[in-house]
Design a protein around this nucleic acid. Sequence first.
RNA 1: GGGAGCAUAGCUCAGUUGGUUUAGAGCAUCUGCCUUACAAGCAGAGGGUCCGCGGUUCGAACCCGUGUGCUCCCA
Length: 874
Amino acid sequence: MELSKNFIPNETEARWYEHWLEKGYFKSEPDEREAYSIVIPPPNVTGVLHMGHCLNNTIQDILIRRARMQGKNACWVPGTDHASIATEAKVVQMLRERGISKSSLSRDEFLSYAWEWKEKYGGIILQQLRKLGCSLDWDRTSFTMDPDYSASVIKVFTDLYSKGYIYRGKRMINWDVKAKTALSDEEVIYKDAQSKLYHVRYRIDRPDGPEEYITIATVRPETILGDSAICVNPADERYKHLQGQYAIVPLANRRIPIIADDYVAMDFGTGALKVTPAHDMNDYQLGEKYNLEVIDTMNDDGTMSEAAGMFIGIDRLEVRKLIVPELEKAGSLVKIEDYNNQVGYSERTDAMVEPRLSLQWWVSMKKISGPALDAVMQNDINFHPAKFKNLYRHWMENIKDWCISRQLWWGHRIPAYYAPDGSYAVAASKEEALAELQQTQPALTAEDLRQDEDCLDTWFSSWLWPFEVFKGMSAPGNAEVKYYYPTSTLVTAPEIIFFWVARMIMAGYEYMGEKPFSDVYFTGIVRDKQGRKMSKSLGNSPDLLGLIDKYGADAVRFGIMIASPAGNDILFDEASLEQGRNFNNKLWNALKLVKMWEGRQSGDAVADSNFAVNWFGNRLSQVRAEVNTLLEQFRLSEALKTLYSLIWDDFCSWYLEWIKPGFEQPINAAVYQQTLVYFEELTELLHPFMPFITEEIYHLLREHKDDLCVKQQKENSTSDQHVLDAGELLKQVISALRDARNKNQIKPKDSINLQIRTADTASYQPIEHILAKQVNAGSIQYTQNDTVPGSIVVAVEKDKFFIESEQQVDAEALKANLLKDLAYQEQFLVSVQKKLSNERFVQNAKPEIIALERKKEADAEARILTIRQSLENL
RNA sequence: GGGAGCAUAGCUCAGUUGGUUUAGAGCAUCUGCCUUACAAGCAGAGGGUCCGCGGUUCGAACCCGUGUGCUCCCA
């Protein structure tokens, strides 16, 4: 069969993925084997595949494919996250495009649109993962709003509530005025802003005394209408006489106290702080401390409320402009300064976030986080890289309560039911809630009850993911969860270490009594070439499917993995995909070369092919052990680099060249057969990283009934160091001779005669043919002479090589080179001898280190002698 | 303001309890080759004050201190 010039990925990939699916290789059922399970970090249903997913899922696929090839029962569970706020925003936008406003719909109507949207677009990202070659068990596809899953979320809520871990409280939260919902701290993005600092004076309320003012500075003058105090530092001499007095809020004409607290920085602004407990985090705390009035001047849509007393119904940002001339008119405005600060915006809607007082549901984190901190600190759960342990500990030790309610419709509705008098019950159903409330209010009916309007934070469902995908909560103790839980490895981004990883660990211990996973691999963030985070707004996110089309999935997997150690951000550059494609091509061409020999096998042994076969076998064993160690340490990119070099350099550049027969010459059948075995073993090692091309080559090399995808990898075997050393020496000699040819401008086609002076002729005899072929030598002889007239001398270790050629020797150039080398060697010798003459070194260093230094010394001395002799001869 | 991380070749990065390191790889650069697997290739080469300073040690890219620069997280 004719093989194409280059590897053509697209058709091959589709064909093999179909085949693997058909054979059911990705399916997993509990059996007697050891389980290796991974749950996918569920992508948002709104998502499309981007570079972050590509990296993350490639890593998971590498781990799961390797486990599968090592005889473990590998199970990789796919699924998606309902992504409350992101999805609701998408649906609202879709409705707007259809001319429908969310406020015109009932909750149920809205939800039916949302489900419609989810069914239509929610699976796109999972389809895209197939293109990447991901070996997920598709029959297990889960969704965080599946019926059982939802029931479990509600069960967890009611359970935590009954344990007293969940409470309802009025707190200052970040308010998104566009989505009309609370945001977690993590969903607020701070941007630098050029603001104005308004200096406003408040008249001291002193009906009889002299007129006096106290001046405050604020960037949000509209909040003046909600002021309930002015605070100064108790040590501030400027204001000492005013402490305990009262001031009048401009425009509002309200009388507020002047209080003193260390919180106020004397050197910031005017040193006097206006306190607005309803609209500022810190002011709220001051308000609590001094029992100040809370005046909420803002509606949920960001417009001014009745309580503001003026500008009612106008947006707060508009009011910020309108209030300035009013203050000026009232004689209260002192001055306006430019001021650079950071302003929070909603991650989802980009609305300027307003701190707002709101009644929300909370999880009391200190009560549930204990075992989760210990598990990581005691390495019961291992982080890769371990440096993230510090970050984790810091957060866990300073953990704050978790606001779990969101003012959204899409998600799990909070199972709290309110009676008309405001009392409520938390229960899995309305009926149960009614029964509970009837104990104190027997006359209540179901019609009287109203369920909480809010939904739960998305992370309140995804923290159950590692066990609920196996129905560990909805069908406790079932065979699957017993078999697959705890899962083996979680692969995720460090940015969600708190949102998700920490909370999964907490939920795991709380509900399964065990950790959710043993290892956590943190990927880096994929950035563009300039180091910027990839984002839609920057438009620097490449089209992944387009890249797969252009380079092939294997090349994309290679490109994203080759320079991405765990936990390091990667600067993505298409050039690395090109490298991957070139690697594909190299493999393909090696296949073509080997296939050319298929019909040319003969029984004749080519003398020194045995050396090559023996050497590569040992080299393969050595690298296999290295790669296995690297993979066990989760050093995936190092493992891939090692394989890349084994295949490109050792296999293609050295081994295949060493065994390659002359033009249209036969190849020894045993050598050919062993070469097939080696090539297959290489595809085996590489398969987890580049599944498609390796499967293709495996089958093209020779007929196989099995597939590489499920082939069991060969176990580690030992390698013979002497053989490896002999191979290295041969490479070194070849390179040195080629270098000498190059430097002396001997054309590649020009043949040379080679004379070798060595104490160990026997070690060269088996490799004479290889050596001759690789350096284009017409003949090889051994000599006892120190010099060969008219030749170029090359020294490798203690042996000398004399190159004789037609080419005139350029004595000057040769001399210059030798002198340069001599200087280097002499300097080297000095450094080694200095070390060896240091008594403390000889006393303290390990014996093998000293032996090594002695060898260095002897080799350097031998080389220096050779160079000196050569110089004399010139 | 609090905490963490990083700094190695032109670029991107390895360097795993301090000793095969006068420091490696890929890309880029330079030289020579269209050699019947591969020019998306082959054979070679050049390129480094391991951020500065101080310390520990027989020995430091690696450990400690300090300075500088960058990044991230939290407020």
